[in-house]
């Protein structure tokens, strides 16, 4: 029998109690093991509801969810073992007096041997760039630092599948780069579903799911999405500033990744280039 898909949803629907409109309706897609898939769309589009259905925090109204072949509602243990979820607001997740205890919290619950636990905690703290913070108290950390502690706690559990709900929303540019680099390092090794409002974080993703009004409205490659102004506009998506500048100058086909890329392209195209040294 071939390996089941890492994540699979079929005709998935859900309505919150007391709400007439469904939060999710008829959503179907598959994510293979090792894929890096982005999820974008407006607030209220169904992104967070989808994640909660995938890890069994919510039970599907109709349709099916399978995580490595398991149903999150009837086989929660199988699913929780494989899935690590990081929420938007790191404040909600931090529980222990010191950073290292917080990162170790999940491992203690699983009964991991002491020596192995230490090594995993150390590795995870280093991975998020917080070496030296082991004995800091979480309440003295900034929002961005707390988010990195939460991510470290997740990585220490070594899940196969990472569900990330805007993991960089509280990070500054440097912290964001650090976390995104780390996520890039986990590619192929983990299956990653990454919800974000920042398209620039998904330019290297394998695919991007666009959710709006509770429906999956597109399942596309990043390059397709950023070069489709109608698809972007219909889903209230805005290109990152650099791509918007490029597009305003008629250079969108060049897809600059850095300001330097764009500057070079402008120089190249400008009739004034002979004046420059």
């Amino acid at each position: 029998m071939p390996d089941p898909a890492s994540i699979s949803c079929e005709d998935l629907s859900y309505a919150y109690p007391g709400e007439a409109e469904p939060a999710l309706s008829g959503v179907g897609f598959e994510v293979r093991a090792g894929e890096y898939v982005g999820v974008v769309g407006p607030n209220g589009g169904g992104k967070s509801t989808l994640l909660r259905l995938l890890n069994g925090l919510l039970a599907a109204g109709s349709g099916t969810v399978r995580i490595a072949g398991h149903d999150p509602t009837t086989e929660p243990f199988e699913v929780r073992q494989r899935v690590g979820m990081l929420f938007q607001n790191p404040e909600n997740g931090l529980v222990a007096p010191f950073v290292e205890d917080d990162v170790a919290f999940g491992l203690e619950n699983l009964g991991v041997p002491r020596g192995e636990m230490r090594a995993r905690v150390r590795g995870a703290i280093e991975a998020v760039g917080l070496a030296g913070y082991e004995r800091r108290e979480p309440h003295t950390l900034s929002g961005g630092e707390k988010q990195r502690v939460a991510l470290a706690g997740l990585l220490a559990l070594e899940p196969e599948i990472l569900l990330l709900d805007e993991p960089t929303s509280m990070l500054d540019a440097a912290g964001r780069r650090e976390v995104l680099d780390r996520l890039r390092g986990l590619r192929r090794e983990k299956t990653i579903l990454h919800v974000t409002h920042h398209l620039e974080e998904l330019l290297d993703a394998d695919r991007i799911l666009v959710m709006n009004g509770g429906e999956l409205v597109a399942d596309v490659y990043p390059a397709q999405l950023i070069s489709d102004p109608d698809l972007l506009a219909r889903n209230y998506l805005v290109l990152p500033p650099l791509l918007r500048l490029a597009s305003g100058l008629g250079l969108e086909a060049k897809k600059p990744r850095t300001p330097e890329d764009l500057a070079r392209e402008i120089q190249h195209r400008s009739p004034r280039r002979t004046e420059a040294r």
Binding site: P240, P241, L242, L245, P259, E260, L262, A263, R264, I266, Q267, R272, E275, A276, R277
Partner: peptide, 15 residues
């Protein structure tokens, strides 16, 4: 911001 970085990169080349 991206706007300033782009202009700064151009200014650096003598423009």
């Amino acid at each position: 911001p991206a706007t300033v970085s782009t202009v700064a990169a151009l200014n650096e080349t003598g423009w």
